[in-house]
Amino acid sequence: MAHYFKSVLTVLAARGLQAIIVAVIVGIVSFAMMQALPGDAAFRIAAGRYGYDMMDAAAAEAVRLELGLDAPWFVQLWGWLGQLAQFDLGNSLVYGTPVVDEIATQLGYSLLLAGGAIVASLMIALPMGVATGLNPDSLLDRICMGLSVFLRAVPAFALGVVLVLVFAVQLKLFPVAGFRGIENLILPSFTLGIGLAAVSNRVVRDAVVDAMNSDWQLFARTKGLSARLTLARHVLRNAALPVVTYVGVQLAYLIEGVVIVETVFAWPGIGHALVHAIFGRDIAMVQGTALTLGLLYVALNLCVDLACRGIDPRERAV
């Protein structure tokens, strides 16, 4: 058991370091964005902090002094990152509200969409992958292969547009955009889920094929276990390992997809907010939303790491 906790601690430490790297990168790029903006930085930051209504030249001067905006850029960067380290994300430059409050409401929507996408992808990929994996090189296998290659080539936003045109506008089965209820979740979830499943169903298939062709599968059979028992006791567990690992690989696609698909469906989540903020040059919001998405990515990766450890005893003590 002690070994188990030690290995979990290693995972936590690695992911913690990753989280710090994410924060530093987001901070640096946001700072560069700020520097690249035309006009007076002190003015904008003051506006960011206190809102446009509450600020004047004096406030801007105070900010200039406080942040040392006359100082060389690297001193300023240090101060910028220092603020980030204190979880001070500032106020939206457009709305004047604290960035943290905005994100708090958006995060729930994004998590809902991410969760829906994973569920949708598993609903497609697992049955498809197991069925083709148990019948490799069958007609079904070849059809699924072709479908996977094709769907993999369709970018999420293009798929989203097509799904909207067909199911929402033409057939009127689902709402077009926005969020009023759970029915809004279905189209964006499947837009992302289909993209994820296009690859992961092949991963499931290959994992099942490998397991079925393994020496240990044959030995489990020849020692007397039935096909069904062998599948349940040995094959599925071994096949699950690469599949869960692959979910980890797909997380990057998932987060990227959330950003784009939220925009397509006007989904009130963080990704939509990020795109909106970039367009409106609301740097405080860009920083806050990008940071949250980056940390969400780290957190989901952590979940996958721990799930792998749950399945694979080799990662624990032997």
Binding site: Q18, I21, V22, I25, V26, V29, S30, M33, L251, A252, Y253, I255, E256, V259, I260, L274, V275, I278, R281, V286, A290, L293, G294, Y297, V298
Partner: peptide, 13 residues
């Protein structure tokens, strides 16, 4: 450490 597109998005910004 970050999804690629997120980084591209930020740099593009």
């Amino acid at each position: 450490a970050m999804p690629g597109l997120l980084l591209v998005l930020m740099l593009a910004a």
